[in-house]
Simulated assay, not measured.
Amino acid sequence: RRAETAVVQMVTQASGSPKLEHKGYNRGLILGLTMAESMLLLVFCLLLVAAAMITAERKQRMDAEQRLAQLEQQNKELSALLVEAQSKLGSNMSATDRAKFESEWRELVSARQIIDRLKMNDASPADLAKLAAVAKVLAANNIPLDKAPDQLEQLLHGDIKPHEWPPIISLSEAGGYYFTSGSAALTREFEDKLETSIADQIADNLERYQVDVVEVIGHTDEQRVARSTSNLDDASIGVIDGQLPVDALQPADNAGLGLARAIAVANILKENPKLKDVTVLPMSAAQLVIPGDALTSGQAGDVKERRRIEIRIRRRAESLQP
């Protein structure tokens, strides 16, 4: 009996071992695959992805090589056309024209090289436009471009004197410079001074300050002009051109009277040989500006100091746009 029991136990233990081994085997499965099979599947997928990437890269390289070949072919064709055009052009050109053509071609090549260098230094067209404007301002003030840093350094350290403006020449009735009452006609004495001492003074200032524009500004007092109609719109240009005498101007207000008298003085100055290269501009300030460059607040009556001609000189205005 004991022997039978021992045999049964041995059989039971023998039949239980495969079950334990089967359970361990099930623990190694992933989606029904073993770890080794899963790793093989993963490697296979990676190979597929790598093959797709290599194929795409190869296609891109082939497309680039094909495009490069097309560009090289186009370059050869354009070069051949350029050589042919140059030969045809050169055959019909004289020696002088050929030299001019070659010189201009070299200038274009040089300009292209300069542009390339500027691009390498991150210089934009806007930067060049600003530089051109600065160079124009420096030239207008007689400052060489290569000396501009030194001039700026001196200015910052206070080594440069303040700018000296050209003086204003004021010719008032109080100083003996008369017009005919209510008219633009000059007295003989006034005209003689304009042709001699005043012209000399203006010429000296033009040379000293390197300017080329003379402004002649007519001022009046606040007495009303005893005339109802004006012919300045019709006659001013004719008087300025010398086709009509100054007496032909008939102003009807102080603005017109100031302009008419400025035209009379400007015409005398324009005829002076010392001022032949100067632009003379007649203007009117009417009765608005009193001596000392202040606006009037209302001052009626006969005031000789306000009836005057002011002569100002300046440099011709130049735009800073390139």
Score class of each variant (00 low, 15 high):
1 R>N: 06
2 R>C: 09
8 V>D: 12
10 M>Y: 06
11 V>E: 08
15 S>C: 13
16 G>L: 06
21 E>P: 15
27 R>G: 05
29 L>W: 02
32 G>K: 07
33 L>R: 10
37 E>F: 10
38 S>Y: 12
39 M>L: 07
47 L>N: 02
48 L>W: 14
50 A>Q: 14
55 T>G: 13
57 E>T: 01
58 R>I: 11
61 R>T: 03
62 M>H: 01
62 M>R: 04
64 A>Y: 03
67 R>F: 00
69 A>S: 11
72 E>N: 08
78 L>P: 00
85 A>M: 05
86 Q>R: 06
90 G>V: 01
93 M>T: 12
94 S>P: 01
98 R>Y: 12
100 K>S: 14
107 E>K: 11
110 S>A: 14
112 R>G: 10
115 I>Y: 14
117 R>V: 05
121 N>P: 00
124 S>N: 09
128 L>V: 15
131 L>Q: 09
134 V>H: 04
135 A>T: 05
142 N>H: 08
144 P>S: 05
148 A>Y: 13
151 Q>A: 15
151 Q>P: 00
153 E>S: 14
154 Q>C: 10
160 I>Q: 06
161 K>V: 01
162 P>T: 07
163 H>R: 02
164 E>G: 03
164 E>A: 06
165 W>T: 10
171 L>A: 12
171 L>H: 02
173 E>L: 10
173 E>A: 11
173 E>R: 15
176 G>D: 07
178 Y>R: 12
181 S>G: 08
181 S>W: 12
189 E>P: 02
191 E>Q: 14
191 E>P: 12
193 K>S: 12
193 K>A: 04
198 I>L: 04
218 G>D: 13
220 T>H: 09
220 T>F: 13
222 E>L: 00
222 E>T: 02
223 Q>S: 08
233 D>A: 13
235 A>L: 12
235 A>F: 13
236 S>E: 15
238 G>H: 04
239 V>P: 00
242 G>L: 03
243 Q>V: 02
244 L>D: 00
251 P>N: 05
258 G>P: 11
264 A>P: 14
267 N>D: 13
276 K>F: 04
276 K>H: 04
278 V>M: 05
282 P>Y: 11
283 M>R: 15
284 S>G: 10
289 V>L: 13
291 P>M: 00
292 G>I: 08
295 L>H: 07
302 D>E: 13
305 E>G: 02
307 R>C: 08
312 R>C: 02
315 R>T: 03
320 L>N: 01
321 Q>V: 08
322 P>S: 07
